[in-house]
Amino acid sequence: MITDFTPYTSLAGGVLIGLSAVILLLTNGRIAGISGIYSRLFESSRLANGRSAWLHGEKSWQLAFVGGLVLAPLLLMSGGLEIEQVFTGDLSLIAIAGVLVGFGSVFGNGCTSGHGVCGLSRLSIRSLAATVTFMSVGAVVVFVMRHLVGG
């Protein structure tokens, strides 16, 4: 299935993502890495010194960030935007992909946002290596599924 090449809206969306990284960097002094922010929500709610991570730690802004992320499409839809989502696999494939994405992004310390956007913006060699790795493996998987197995 073909999707339209959308250079203008994709660039505009990218600018917003960059802006988000800048907001978080200048205000909270943190990296806008979604796998890191989201997964740390499930860590202990006590800090090492015994104080609440919700009151004295990072958890409250992390939850607010994820909340903003989840609410964004609702806001855009109420403004009349239609959001298209096409899945090419069944629920079992989606489940397997979910586990791989979750495990890999936390084990490798970042995903498309942390390594791809923020890491490359920081000129980090580690993030460049990570980005090249996940993009190449992703491309190989799509090639095998679409052109070798799927036909």
Binding site: T3, A12, I17, A72
Partner: peptide
């Protein structure tokens, strides 16, 4: 508030850019 604003901006960027469509 800063975290929420950043999250909202990020989410809007993902939707507008078309990246919320897995295809």
């Amino acid at each position: 508030i800063a975290g929420f604003t950043a999250g909202l901006t990020f989410g809007a960027g993902l939707v507008i850019s078309g990246m919320s469509n897995p295809l």
